[in-house]
Each structure stands twice: as structure tokens, then as C-alpha cells.
Design a protein around this nucleic acid. Structure first.
Lengths: 189, 189
DNA sequence: ACGGTAGTGGACGCCGGCGTCCGTTTAGCT
DNA sequence: AGCTAAACGGACGCCGGCGTCCACTACCGT
């Protein structure tokens, strides 16, 4: 569906649209979700009107901009699910998800609660969570994961991970790494 | 010093000042640090000018407003330090600090990083951290706390706890409670 | 090459927060 | 009660983000 809309655009328009998304991704990642729309437009080299025509609201822009992040998210969970050792897979998932969130400030808030009505995100989120639940179930059977573990605990950890502030991205991912290790310890049987 | 300034004010001025602080505390707690100054003034029943005269910057207001929260923080740590069982004391401290932060949105961000230059806060913060370090040292000797525990780990947890979002305060403290339990598990030897 | 149309972006008006000024009010002293 | 200086708050101008309109530009089909 998005494909069709994209194709029906004129070449320059499609180009601009791509530039806007690219700009939005980088700016959201580094400066969080509260960057002005005009700033994104400026970096993309287009006028505000163009930006607003393509993405009437910031939520629409964010939904598209984070689509690939959501996919990355799903890929991470799938990789964990493919791991022969479920507990090891789960640990990897936790570490990678934490790092992903630490690297992208905007994605964190978008994923957490910022845009509760972004249906695309919600759907993919549910899919990822379902896969996570399955992974946790398997990890429990090996005895490495605490039997009283609940999926909500992991969500809690991810949300908390989003609260890690730091001056630079590197500092933040470092903190996030330590935090993931802590969480894993808390989950181990 | 603050005392003298307070005393030298005219009675109505002192009264208004108190009302402003009271309003700021409640609004910061429920709505976070990004409430407009005018809104605080309105709730306090004073004009914007009065607010700005007493507290030229939002940081100044916050510093004063959270003074008692900082004290509460110190009291909590001291209570933990007074506990005959250091590990039990540490657990209580973690739980109480998490809950305190969950109940007061503004205090969380103020404590964490929002106002790095609030010297009063910084000083008290250092004092509280020193006491925490001592408590952790004792808890290690009893063997209940992991030997590789670092104070930074606890700071990390507190910062992460600040990232817990929720629609209502009650939901947030509930989440915070679960999170504290998780952290304690991660810290236990 | 050229006409029509999709596409563009500069410019505009609106809104809300900010910080300050000044005419008015009121506490507190005699 | 009267006076004075401290204190107040409504009103003002400024700024920055928002969303939209319209005259201009450039793509694409013939």
C-alpha cells in the first residue's frame, strides 16, 4: 500500500520524500522526538509545506521513519528464537534490544508510549512480543530462566532502559550494556 | 541564609513565596518539570511577576522546591544505614528511593540530570551517595550483596527507574515496586 | 519543444510561553 | 489615621514553533 503511493509520486517528489525520511531518522535518533518539524525539513533540503504534505502529522512521519527500526527489532527477536539455546538467545535479545534503544532516543519513546495510536507500530510490537513470549517459554523449560518470570518484567526492563540519560550516545550505550547485564542477572534462575 | 532572606520579606510576600513553593511542588510532582511558570503562578494565586521576582529562573525554583525531597532522600538512606542488617537496610533503601522517584516525576529528572548546576542539590546528592556507599560496603561484608557490586550500578538502576512511564501515579509506583524487586535480585550474591 | 499538471517552498497568521515594566495596592511603622 | 516603601499583578512585546495558502518551478507525456 505504501509502495503504491510511493510509486505514483513524481520522481522528484519521491526523492524528496526519501530525503525527509532519512533526515527524520537521524534527527529523531540523536535529538529525540521533540525536534521541530521545520528542522527536519531544513536538513532534508525541502520547505515546510512539502514535509507537511507528505506527513500531515509528526506521528505519521515517526511511524514511517521507525518502520525499519521495528523490523530490526523483529529480526533481533527472531534471531534469538533461532538460537539452539533459548536462554542464550533470550540474553542476546535483551542485550541487543537495549542497545538498539540506547542508540535511538526517538525510537525509544515512540516504542514506549509516545504514540499509542500508531497502529503499524502497535501491530509489529504485538508480533515481536508474541515471539518474545515464546522464547521466554522455551528458556524456562531449560531451567535457566526463573520460573516466575513474566513478560511484563521484560517490558518493564526495556522501558526502564529507555530512561537512561547521558550526554553522548556512546556513554548511553555503555550504560545500557551494563543495565542489560543487570537485568539478565535478575532473570536467571 | 535562606532563612534570613525569608525573614526579611514582608508578611504577605513571605506568604506568597510559600504558596508558590507549595504549588511548584505539587505541579512538578504530577506533571513533571515542563510545566509553564505561569501555570505555577496561577495555581499559587499570584501574578507572573511575583513568581519571577522570587525565583528568577526555573532552576532556582526547582532547587528550593525539591529541598525537602532531598532531605527525605537522605533520611531514607540514614534509616537504611541504621538497620542492624545492612543488606536488609539496603533493600529498604532501594525500594523507598524507587517509590519516592516514582511518586514525583519532576524530582526524578531534577535529581538525575536536568539541572546539573543546582549546587544545593549536588551537595546533598553527594552526601547521600557517600552514605549509600558505606551501606553497600557493610552489606558486602555480610555476604548478601554481590562482591562485584559498584555504586554506579545502583545509580544506574535509579536512573532507569526514572524512565518508567505510566498514565497514573499509582500505576507508576506499582511498576517501580516491581522494578525495585528486580534490581534487588540482580544485586543479591 | 511545449503544454499541463503535480510538486514546491517562501511567506503569512496564529498561538502559547517567556521575561519585564509600571500603575496600583497593602503591610507596617509612627 | 496617615505615610512610605515594599510588594503585587495585569499588560505588553518578543520569540519560536505550528499549519496553510498561493505564486512559481520542473517533471513528463505528446
Amino acid at each position: 500500500m505504501t509502495e503504491q503511493l510511493t510509486r505514483n509520486l513524481r520522481s522528484d517528489a519521491r526523492d524528496n520524500r526519501q530525503r525527509i525520511l532519512e533526515a527524520a531518522r537521524t534527527m529523531f535518533a540523536t535529538d529525540g522526538m521533540d525536534v521541530p518539524m521545520r528542522e527536519i525539513a531544513r536538513r532534508a533540503g525541502v520547505g515546510p509545506a512539502t514535509l507537511y504534505r507528505r506527513f500531515p502529522t509528526k506521528e505519521a512521519l515517526a511511524t514511517e521513519a521507525f518502520a525499519e527500526q521495528m523490523d530490526a527489532c523483529q529480526v533481533i527477536v527472531d534471531e534469538g528464537l533461532a538460537d539452539p539455546d533459548p536462554w542464550h538467545g533470550l540474553c542476546l535479545v535483551i542485550e541487543k534490544l537495549c542497545e538498539l534503544h540506547a542508540r535511538d532516543r526517538g525510537y525509544t519513546s515512540a516504542f514506549t508510549a509516545a504514540f499509542p495510536h500508531a497502529v503499524d507500530l502497535a501491530a509489529k510490537r504485538e508480533a515481536a512480543l508474541a515471539a518474545l513470549a515464546e522464547l521466554a517459554r522455551r528458556a524456562k523449560t531449560t531451567g535457566h530462566l526463573r520460573s516466575d518470570f513474566v513478560l511484563d518484567d521484560l517490558i518493564l526492563v526495556l522501558m526502564a532502559n529507555g530512561g537512561l540519560h547521558a550526554t553522548s550516545t556512546d556513554t548511553r550505550v555503555a550504560a545500557s550494556r551494563r543495565f542489560a547485564a543487570l537485568a539478565i542477572r535478575a532473570f536467571r534462575a
